[in-house]
Structures are given as C-alpha cells and as structure tokens.
Design a protein around this nucleic acid. Structure first.
Length: 297
DNA sequence: TGACAGGGGGTGT
DNA sequence: ACACCCCCTGTC
C-alpha cells in the first residue's frame, strides 16, 4: 500500500502534540492510532494519516487508491473558519474556570463523526477506559467490518451487527455490552429509517429517543449527539465531569441529570464544547496528580 | 516476568 | 443500591 505525499490542511489554530492527542485519542473517537507522531485513523468509509508540522499545522496523507480525502478530513476535524467563531461565543469572558480550560487546550474541537458509528462506539464505552474501548472497536472492525485500503477495516454497520452472533461480539471483549449491541441492532433492523429520523430531530427529542435503546442512557445518548450529530448543546456527564463540576462550580451532591441540565443552562448552546475543555483538564489532572492525591473535599 | 486483586468515562432492575 | 462482564493497571 502506497500513501500520498504529505499535504497541509493549513491554516488553522496551531495544534500541539498534546492537543492533537486529546482530540484524536481523548474519548471522542476510538479508531485512531499513533506511531512515531503519525496518527492513522478511520471514520466511516475513510482512512487517513495525520501529523503536525513544525509550526503546529496539520498535514495529511491517504492511500493513493482513495479519492482526495482532504474535504472529508476538513469536515471530520471541523477545520472551518466557523469553528473559531464558535469557540469565541462560549461564555469564557464571565467564567474563569472555562477560560482557564480553554487556554490550556488551544485548538481542541468537537469531531464530526458518522452518527450510526458513534452510537456503536459509545455503546461499547460503559465502565470501560479508552484503551479497552479501542480494543473492542478494533476487534469488531477486524472481524465484522468491511476492509479498507491499507489493511485496516471500518467499523461494522448495524446490518452486519444484526447478522452477527452475540458470541462474535463477546469475542471482541465487549462483555455484557454485546447483548445491548445485539438488541439495538435487532431494534434498528425492525425500524428502518429510525436512526436517520432520530439524527434529524431537535436535541431533546433525539435524546429521549436514543435513551429508549438498550444500553443507552443519558450519558451515552449525549455523547452520540455531541460527537456524532454535531449537537453542541449536548452536555454529557460522566464521573469525571461530575467531579469537575462539583469542585469548580460548587455542585456537590448534584445528580448527573441535574449537572447536565446545569451545564446546558450555564454554558448555553455550545455547552458540549465547554464540556470538552473541562473534560480535557480533568483528564490531565488525573495523569499529573501523584497517586492518592485527592483534590476534593 | 508473573500472578493477583481492585476497580472502571454506565445502564437497567 | 447492586449486578452486569471482562480486561487493564498497579502492585507485590
């Protein structure tokens, strides 16, 4: 397999290796792998490589057999001038916590992933860490997904998942999530067009519908809408966000659903973007803090 | 290098 | 509140 020469996606806000890692491997997407500062990833039917130039600009390469991946990449990475305006509309001027987090992660953004695929990856995510989720996704792709140029496979579509045995899914180290995926696949097979309709619905209605799927609760529904449908008002609340909000916004004792509502109200139509900055901060603190350090209380 | 707990980015009952 | 299911991670 030969790959195209590197070409630039500039201009955009310069990215540091740390921010790029957070973007591609921080919990939004689970199909990116890094080798010697080169990231290779798949989304939908696409595959591409990404690296950073000396001045923090993205460069890309794709298999020579693929059509120009540049447009797909720009869309996937939200590399449009609009994004800068989007960021500026966040209430950072009146929120020092948010301003600080945004300052720590310049260029961090929300990926635009395929909806159906995002539902699948986040269905795999409950009580799993990123490494484990990635393993499950890689296994599913390898065993049930169509092959892509370059030896990798794309994630299986819901039709393929419906046709698969639960044992095939279990073999992908998905644990009890295998049953949820099978049940969801069966439901989607019985209701053609349901996913597409859901994606087109307003946020609250789409969220309510997703939650009716087996294995999809409020958190996963919010992730699917934020990362897979561009619903930037979605504010996913996991245990880390729960901690951050408790500590820095004095929301001790609040329940996840209450924090989600607070987030959407406080941060407004771009709450999910704010969430991503706060989330990145929380993850960084966890990595840097010495073992046993507890900043709560 | 290897065995052994502990616990995990959530959901459903 | 607790089970679900399994694997990653830290530790001895």
């Amino acid at each position: 397999m030969t790959w195209t020469p590197w070409r630039s996606l500039a201009p955009h806000t310069p990215l540091s290796p740390t921010v790029l890692r957070e973007l591609l491997d921080g919990g939004q997407a689970f199909c990116w792998y890094e080798t010697d500062s080169v990231w290779e990833g798949t989304w939908g039917e696409h595959i591409a490589r990404l690296r950073l130039s000396d001045n923090g600009q993205l460069e890309w390469s794709a298999p020579t057999t693929c059509p120009d991946a540049s447009d797909a990449l720009r869309h996937y990475l939200a590399l449009d001038p609009e994004w800068e305006k989007t960021i500026d509309a966040l209430p950072w001027r009146s929120d020092a916590v948010l301003a600080s987090a945004m300052g720590n992660w310049p260029g961090l953004r929300i990926l635009r992933q395929p909806f159906a695929e995002t539902l699948l990856t986040f269905l795999c995510s409950s009580t799993k860490q990123i490494v484990q989720i990635k393993q499950g996704c890689a296994q599913m792709a390898a065993t049930l997904g169509k092959s892509l140029p370059g030896g990798r496979h794309r994630l299986p579509d819901w039709e393929a998942l419906h046709a698969a045995d639960e044992d095939d899914l279990r073999a992908c180290r998905l644990g009890y999530r295998a049953r949820f995926i099978k049940q969801t696949a069966a439901f989607l097979a019985e209701h053609p067009g349901w996913l597409e309709e859901t994606e087109a619905l307003p946020y609250a209605e789409a969220r309510a519908r997703l939650i009716t799927l087996p294995g999809v609760g409020a958190k996963i529904a919010d992730c699917v809408l934020l990362f897979g449908a561009g619903r930037l008002e979605s504010f996913p609340v996991d245990t880390w966000i729960l901690k951050v909000m408790a500590q820095r916004y004095r929301l001790d004792g609040w329940k996840p659903e209450q924090v989600a509502t607070f987030g959407r109200t406080h941060f407004g139509p771009l709450a999910g973007v704010a969430q991503q900055f706060l989330f990145a901060d929380a993850r960084a603190v966890r990595r840097i803090a010495p073992a046993g350090t507890d900043t709560s209380a």
